[in-house]
Design a protein around this nucleic acid. Structure first.
Lengths: 113, 113
DNA sequence: CAAAGATACATAAGAAACAGATGCATTGAA
DNA sequence: TTCAATGCATCTGTTTCTTATGTATCTTTG
């Protein structure tokens, strides 16, 4: 099962920020693969969605980049800036709050692992 | 606190369907007020978002409508069609699944009421 | 060794969904 | 009687994503 794209809208930026918080340095393709793995293929970030998002995060000063080469192949590594770190906490907290509201609104029981 | 609009994107249709499942008959303005109440003002559905959504649900055959008058004031009541009822279950289940995935991905602790 | 698939970046055109503004009309309260 | 609330609706952005395309390198497999 893959979630309808509607559902994923609006969470992409938060997901990317959270991954960077946990991993300190990641490149674009790595992010798509990591999300695919972690969600058992249920969330598949397309490149057309990811790269523009990363560029916006960079423009907004939330991430910094370093271009590195693995042989001739370029990789653009992204890291959270200090501003990005605090923004990440904000975003994740807001999403947590939102999810509690949605649980209440939709009377949903989530797993309590 | 009001959630960033990004976050709410994609959940509006599910929220409306769920409300109609619980209340059998509602009109547009009533829906906006109920959501506002239930979420303690954290989710405020604008009319520019709601009415197009309701019209799409009607076009898709998920809801039926009845126009009624309270004095001279028109109210357009929306009810779930049989198709709408099963679609609602699908949507709510998908959202519950999605929320569990996001909890895992973002390592979020939600309230276990 | 050639071809195909995976890795890695990126952009561009269009669709979808919502925000914000506006409009009209009725009703109730100050 | 005037303002806020109720109730419908549409329209013009804007944002965000989808789908397609483009370029290039590396790896695996027949």
């Amino acid at each position: 099962m893959i979630y309808s794209s509607e559902l994923i809208k609006g969470t992409l930026k938060t997901i990317v920020l959270k991954l960077l918080e946990d991993n300190s340095r990641m490149y674009g393709y790595e992010i798509t693969q990591r999300v695919k793995e972690l969600t058992f293929d249920k969330i598949q970030i397309t490149e057309g969605a990811l790269y523009p998002t990363l560029h916006v995060l960079e423009e907004d000063g939330l991430v910094t980049t370093e271009l590195e080469y693995n042989g001739k192949r370029a990789r653009k590594y992204y890291s959270l800036s200090p501003e990005g770190k605090s923004k990440t906490k904000e975003r994740v907290d807001e999403l947590a709050d939102f999810m509690n509201t949605m649980k209440f609104l939709l009377d949903i029981k989530t797993q309590t692992t």
